[in-house]
Computed example of a mutant assay.
Amino acid sequence: MDESPKKIHVESVNRNTLSKQVVKSIIQLLVSGQMKPGDKLPTEMELMEKISVSRPVLREALSSLESLGVITRKTREGTFFNNKISSHPFSIMLSLAHDNLQAIIEARMALELGLITIAAEKISDEELSRLKSTIDVIANSNGSDYGEADIEFHRIIALSANNQIVEGMVDSLIVTLVKTNSEIKVREPERTVQHHLAIYKALEKRDPFEAFHQMYLHLDYVRQKVLKDHT
């Protein structure tokens, strides 16, 4: 890996703008070809000087990029673009729209509704068993303490599609799911169990049409709930 300093040009942004513009400026290094996956980013001091922003704004932007899997910060080594960026293009798009909740929810719907029809044809009995276990965890949870089981339910379905080309989308799907869940103010475990159980039964029957229908009903409910709570 080449860690030698690179001569780069980064568009500066106004000091009063949000970290999103800093995210765009850093992403532009990839889009423009000035840097590539695996490259080491300039130091914080260099980025602050080139982009003309304060340290808190820069660090907020870097945190967003790290949570989306675009960069990795290594102690005493520096900050690097991840090697997997090229196989996870949705991570870049998510980073550019990290404050657009409606776009994130719609991206989640597009990914999950496509994946579940494939999952209905391929899901194994073992995966179905694991799926049912997550539903049981939610049913026995204490009110709102079931976030991990909820995420695992959707992860199992996505991975059961067993397609190496779309596998790179799963990480991005989980990012959208975590973001969506973080915006839910009041959880309804009984409703979640009801929706998940309907999806499970459709998958158990290996019925892609019913699986799509039940997943759409679930995701549309989540969309309406989150956007209502967010306004």
Rank of each mutant, 00 (worst) to 15 (best):
N181D: 06
K132V: 00
P89F: 02
I156N: 05
F212I: 03
G114C: 12
P208G: 04
F212P: 05
S124L: 09
I138R: 03
Q164R: 14
V170I: 15
R191V: 06
A97F: 12
I157E: 01
N83F: 11
I118K: 00
L96M: 10
Q214G: 03
K84D: 14
V170R: 04
D220I: 10
R76C: 03
K132W: 01
I116H: 03
Q194G: 00
N82D: 07
S87C: 06
V170Y: 14
S86N: 03
R187N: 04
D125A: 05
S95V: 10
I116L: 01
R130G: 06
L131G: 02
S124E: 13
N83C: 06
E183I: 05
N100R: 13
M93Q: 03
E112L: 12
V178Q: 15
S141Q: 05
I118S: 00
S86F: 02
V193T: 10
F81I: 06
S172K: 09
N142W: 06
A97T: 13
D125P: 02
S124N: 09
K122W: 01
E204T: 01
K132T: 00
E190I: 10
R155H: 12
Q194M: 11
L101F: 10
K201M: 00
N162A: 14
E183K: 12
A110M: 13
S160G: 09
V175R: 15
K122T: 02
I174S: 06
L128R: 01
N163T: 02
E183F: 04
H88N: 11
E190F: 09
E106P: 09
L177F: 05
E152I: 12
S86R: 09
K201R: 00
I157G: 01
S91L: 03
N82Q: 11
A158V: 11
H98I: 11
N82T: 04
Y200N: 01
E183G: 03
A139V: 11
I92P: 09
I156G: 03
K122E: 04
A97Y: 13
H195K: 03
F81Y: 11
L203E: 00
V186K: 09
D171Y: 15
M169V: 12
T180D: 11
G147W: 06
E106M: 12
S144P: 10
E148M: 14
Y146R: 14
Q194F: 09
L101G: 06
P189R: 13
K179Q: 11
A139K: 15
R130N: 11
K132S: 04
M109R: 11
S129P: 05
S160C: 05
Q164N: 14
A97E: 14
I116E: 00
I92Y: 10
